[in-house]
Every structure is written in C-alpha cells, then in structure tokens.
Computed example of a mutant assay.
Amino acid sequence: METHELDDESYRCFTCNAVFRGRVFEIAREWERTHFSSTIPEVEIVDAYGLECYCSQTCLDARRDMVMAAEAVPIRRVDGIGPVNPCANCGGPVDMTEFHLAYAGMCSDMRGAMALTVDVDYLAVLCKKCHPYGRTYKTCTDIEATVVNAPF
C-alpha cells in the first residue's frame, strides 16, 4: 500500500522515491554465522545494517550493482548455505560456522518493529582477511561506531 507521508511504519524507496509500508526489499550488511545442527541451517545474525530499502524487487535490482560497488565488494552469490563458501573478494574459503561479514538482498514483511523474512539472496560473504577491519565482531563495531559510512 503506497502512501504519500513518511511515518514510523513507512519507508522511502531509494530507487523510485515512493513511500510504502508492509513488504520491504533491502540490501543489508550482516555479521553472522550459520548453525548446521538441525535439518535446516539456522543463521545467527548479531548485527545488521540496512544499506538501502526498496518498494519492489525491480527497484532493488536496479540499484544492487551500484550499492555493492559503493561497498567495494563484488557480487559473488552464495548458492545455498554450505559449511564453507567462497569469499567474494579473494575466492578463499569462508567458514560459515564462524562469524563473518555477509551481504544480502532480502524481502521481509514488516509487522511493526518485527520483520518476517520471506526471501534472502546472499550477494557476498567475506573471509576474515578480506574485510578490512580485522577478525572480530567487536573490532568491526568499534570502528564502525567511530567512522561514518565505514566502507566494509
């Protein structure tokens, strides 16, 4: 449902500038790891930052390459979550069971402050040597807290 006024439950599309609510498409940077102890892998996200949001998949697709270029991370999609996936920068192994930096295009239904994820397209994962601020989540958050628009 498109509206014209931006309020606490609405968003403005980065592509077409429409104000919308409900279903949100976004590109996010996440600090996460995957647990493979059950039949369906479970992703634990300890920090996420929505880079941009969109009113449709078409609008997300229109800006995806530009957003990832601004992050200086090439798109190297992850087909299914395995215990090891290739780093988008160097092609080296990323142990998905350890915390790592990931970029995802997502579709979520928003219900107040709660997001119900409908679909995730992993655009890139980065190994410890390729994300620029070190090897730990604390290092990344400490630097991000002091540097505006940290390009990781």
Rank of each mutant, 00 (worst) to 15 (best):
Glu42Cys: 12
Ala69Val: 08
Pro151Asn: 14
Gly134Lys: 06
Gly112Val: 03
Thr139Tyr: 08
Asn85Phe: 03
Phe99His: 14
Val73Asp: 03
Glu32Asn: 06
Ala104Thr: 12
Cys140Arg: 15
Val78Gln: 07
Glu52Asp: 02
Ala124Asp: 02
Asp79Phe: 04
Asn89Ala: 11
Ala28His: 00
Thr117Pro: 03
Tyr54Ser: 12
Ser56Trp: 00
Met68Lys: 02
Val148Asp: 09
Tyr122Val: 15
Thr34His: 11
Ala115Glu: 06
His131Glu: 09
Gly134Trp: 00
Asp95Thr: 13
Ser10Asp: 14
Arg33Trp: 07
Cys140Ala: 15
Ile143Val: 15
Leu60Ile: 08
Ala69Cys: 02
Thr136Leu: 05
Thr34Cys: 11
Gly22Leu: 01
Cys90Phe: 06
Tyr54Ala: 11
Ala70Ile: 05
Phe14Met: 07
Cys107His: 02
Leu6Ser: 05
Asp119Met: 10
Val78Tyr: 07
Tyr103Arg: 07
Arg12Val: 05
Met114Arg: 14
Cys13Asn: 10
Ala150Val: 03
Pro74Leu: 00
Tyr54Asp: 09
Leu6Asp: 02
Phe36Asn: 00
Met68Ala: 01
Met66Ala: 13
Thr117Ala: 05
His35Lys: 15
His131Gly: 10
Arg63His: 08
Cys59Ala: 01
Leu123Tyr: 08
Cys59Pro: 07
Glu5Val: 15
Asp79Cys: 10
Met68Val: 10
Val148Thr: 13
Glu32Lys: 07
Lys138Arg: 08
Asp109Ile: 04
Arg33Gln: 13
Asp142Lys: 13
Ser38Met: 06
Pro132Lys: 12
His4Ile: 15
Ala150Asn: 11
Arg77Pro: 04
Ala145Val: 04
Thr117Phe: 03
Cys90Ala: 10
Val84Tyr: 03
Pro83Cys: 01
Ile81His: 04
Gly91Glu: 07
Ala124Glu: 07
His4Tyr: 13
Asp142Glu: 15
Gly50Arg: 14
Leu60Trp: 10
Gly134Thr: 07
Cys127Met: 06
Ala115Trp: 00
Arg23Met: 05
Gly134Asp: 07
Lys138Cys: 00
Gln57Met: 09
Glu32Arg: 14
Ile27Glu: 07
Trp31Ser: 10
Ser108Asn: 11
Ala62Lys: 14
Asn17Tyr: 08
Val73Glu: 01
Trp31Val: 05
Val94Phe: 03
Val120Arg: 14
Thr139Trp: 02
Met96Trp: 03
Ser37Lys: 10
Met106Asp: 07
Pro93Cys: 11
Cys107Arg: 11
Ala18Cys: 05
Gly134Ile: 09
Glu144Ala: 07
Arg63Tyr: 04
Glu98Pro: 09
His131Trp: 04
Asp8Gln: 14
Cys90Tyr: 12
Cys55Ala: 09
Leu60Pro: 11
Gly50Met: 12
Cys90Val: 11
Phe25Val: 01
Cys13Gln: 05
Cys16Phe: 02
Pro41His: 01
Gly112Thr: 10
Ala113Thr: 06
Thr3Leu: 12
Gly80Trp: 04
Glu71Arg: 13
Phe99Thr: 12
Arg135His: 07
Cys53Gln: 13
Thr139Pro: 03
Thr15Cys: 06
Asn85Cys: 01
Gly91Phe: 02
Ile40Thr: 09
Asp95Arg: 15
Ala124Cys: 09
Asp79Ile: 13
Asn149His: 03
Val148Pro: 08
Thr141Asp: 00
Thr15Asn: 08
Tyr122Arg: 06
Ile81Thr: 12
Tyr122Cys: 13
Thr146Leu: 10
Thr15Asp: 12
Thr141Val: 05
Phe36Thr: 04
Ala115Asp: 08
